[in-house]
């Protein structure tokens, strides 16, 4: 029976968390189908301990392609390596993260392989009887959940929303086969990465953050946005912003949460002075806990908040910061 594959993401020799999340999710699928689970890593170099992490996270096989042409990522280098691998091994399922990497590579690859692809899934299952992969994703601004399958095309492909599943527990006693994949550099790669300018004042993208503190129009002016930033740094959280706040220049676009910004699933989302336009709510529906601090009891955000403080944010947020600091000191 054909294997289940996940595509790992590597940065600077180290795996990104999504690589392990994918294995956690795919392990259940492979077990249900009674097949092997493989992780494909295409990179310039993957450290030995990282290979072991893939195995400990559930991979039975690792296809490891190490070549300087594979990092930084370009579509043509990764797609040609994967097309050769798929032709040789014919997996039945390929999963990647719904990241800038997966959402670029997989739609390109799906056309080259003449296969179906479902974007940004938050759940997966195997259909009883047929063994088809059921791909479940939020659609129309997160207001409906659609279940999608590709009954007649193999491999079945999907990108999976980061943080939509917990990291698997590591089991270093697992055995795993590492297959080194020969890489033939493309004759002509039309894209070439020149360098990376990291974000200033932002450690991680908001999609990866466990806690996001976000601010909106209720903050009234740019200077007040510091309330959001200060609280975020106190909590080790990332800063989010409503479209209003970004349009007013209080925060930059990478921080925008919502339909025309980022869709995020943090453990905790704290919305400060955000009324909750439908486009904004669509971006946070899968957050585990939503806290709203707002002076309007009837604001849209209340419909999806788990905890709300109705009052003056200019008094509440500073008090929250102060009490947090006090509590830290006594611990």
């Amino acid at each position: 029976m054909a294997d289940v594959w996940t595509i790992a993401e590597v940065s600077g020799g180290v795996l990104k968390e999504i690589s392990l999340e994918l294995l956690g999710r795919a392990r259940t699928l492979a077990d249900t189908l009674g097949v092997r689970l493989a992780s494909v890593a295409l990179t310039s170099h993957l450290n030995e301990d990282q290979v072991e992490r893939l195995a400990a996270s559930g991979a039975d096989v690792i296809y490891l392609g190490q070549d300087s042409t594979l990092e930084p990522f370009t579509v043509s280098a990764h797609a040609s390596a994967l097309m050769a691998l798929v032709a040789e091994h014919s997996p039945q399922i390929i999963l990647a993260g719904a990241t800038t990497y997966g959402r670029t590579l997989l739609p390109y690859l799906a056309v080259k392989l003449s296969c179906g692809l479902t974007a940004d899934c938050t759940d997966l299952a195997i259909e009883e009887g047929s063994g088809n992969l059921l791909q479940i994703r939020p659609a129309i601004g997160g207001n409906i959940m659609a279940t999608i399958k590709s009954p007649n095309h193999r491999p079945q492909m999907a990108t999976i929303r980061p943080r939509s599943t917990p990291l698997p527990s590591l089991d270093y006693s697992r055995t795993c086969t590492v297959c080194h994949v020969p890489i033939t550099a493309a004759v002509h790669n039309p894209t070439h990465v020149l360098g990376l300018r990291p974000f200033v004042g932002q450690q991680r993208s908001i999609e990866d953050a466990e806690i996001v503190v976000a601010g909106g129009k209720g903050l009234k002016k740019r200077d007040n946005f510091a309330l959001v930033e200060d609280l975020a740094s106190l909590l080790g959280a990332e800063v989010g912003a409503s479209r209003d706040a970004v349009d007013r220049g209080w925060a930059t676009y990478p921080h925008q949460v919502g339909l025309s910004g980022k869709t995020i699933s943090p453990e905790l989302y704290i919305a400060i002075g955000i009324s909750g336009a439908i486009q904004h709510l669509a971006g946070i529906k899968t957050a585990k806990r939503i806290v709203a601090i707002n002076n309007d009891r009837d604001a849209n955000i209340m419909a999806i908040a788990d905890y709300a403080i109705i009052g003056d944010l200019f008094a509440i947020v500073p008090l929250l910061a102060k009490r947090l600091q006090e509590r830290r000191k006594t611990q």
């Binding site: 009891r297 788990d306 905890y307």
Partner: peptide
């Protein structure tokens, strides 16, 4: 290649625990 097999409208409304911070004490509690 893909087929939509099911559409569901999940109830996404959550019931919020609401605190009205109208004075110093209620704000502190909240």
């Amino acid at each position: 290649p893909t087929r939509v097999v099911k559409i569901e409208s999940p109830k996404v409304a959550r019931t919020a625990e609401v605190h009205i911070a109208s004075d110093e004490d209620s704000m502190k509690g909240a």
